[in-house]
Design a protein around this nucleic acid. Structure first.
Lengths: 158, 158
DNA sequence: GTGCCAACGTTGGCATCACCAACCATAGGT
DNA sequence: ACCTATGGTTGGTGATGCCAACGTTGGCAC
């Protein structure tokens, strides 16, 4: 996001949107750096996690679960398939679909990324106490839910 | 960032980095949409605000103040100059530098963007009470400061 | 059954943003 | 004079979030 953020802009430095973007940028940097070191990118983790949590699914399903665009899902799955972390098989019951399945190797990789991510959370929230982290999560959850709902009124249940 | 964020990923939905990125995405979308409607982009506001707060400056100075990369400052200033919102004049005391000055029109535009941004803050934090918004700002400020400092130990004072 | 619309996978493209590398001109100190 | 640091500029990279379009296939109505 930025190079040297001494944030000398008084009017901006108290704006939630600015702070959120700053925080996001730092978080993004952490994720990008460490995931890159682990040979992965944000999309990869999201997809693997979705597969682990809800089981095999079509690509469109994965897109909906993870919020990743269909077209981006294709690219990410290509990469994951290239590393044998997932398997793409045609759905016998619907020839339009591919059924994506996590491989054992994919599960191992996911477990690794899980650890990396946990460490990232910790570093990101380093200056906050546990109670403060919980509070931050609570507040952000409210904000995110509010806007997610506004954007996807259809996805009522899940 | 995403299309339909029903966030069905239990393990992710409580991770601060995920929440921050989600919130940032929503905020980013709001900013992009409304700034586009106002004929501006995020960089533009940051630069105009920096000029208004600290007065005319060289491009490198602006980059440091706003955290925008030197090369990106050039492009943004070109656009701003094209709209007569800023003036780029050579520094008589240092022929390497350009002195960037806000024009009256630039100030008007900034004032407008200021209003747009205030509205965005409000929409972004819609689900939160004022006390909660303050708390969110406080927590995020701690996080951002912590990482900004880690990244730019040199920019001690400012 | 035929026809039409919806969903799926895929390709290709666009925009923003953070960032890096390289250039050349100029300052400044030695 | 020389060498280094700084400033403006150009150009390029990569991640991410989207949108548009295509051909294929399913499902439904008629």
């Amino acid at each position: 996001m930025m190079t040297g953020d001494q944030t000398p802009l008084a009017r901006l430095s108290h704006a939630p949107s600015w702070l959120i973007n700053q925080a996001s940028a730092h978080s993004h940097r952490l994720v990008a750096e460490r995931f890159a070191a682990a040979g992965a990118r944000g999309h990869h983790y999201r997809l693997l996690a979705a597969l682990a949590e809800h089981g095999p699914a079509s690509q469109a399903e994965l897109g909906r679960r993870t919020g990743i665009d269909r077209s981006d899902v294709v690219a990410a799955l290509n990469e994951l398939a290239g590393k044998n972390l997932i398997v793409r098989a045609p759905d016998p019951g619907d020839r339009r679909r591919n059924i994506i399945t996590l491989t054992a190797e994919g599960e191992r990789h996911l477990a690794h990324l899980e650890g990396v991510l946990t460490q990232i959370q910790d570093d990101l929230c380093a200056p906050l106490s546990q109670a403060e982290r919980d509070e931050l999560v609570r507040l952000l959850t409210r904000v995110v839910d509010h806007h997610a709902q506004a954007r996807t009124p259809w996805a009522a249940e899940s």
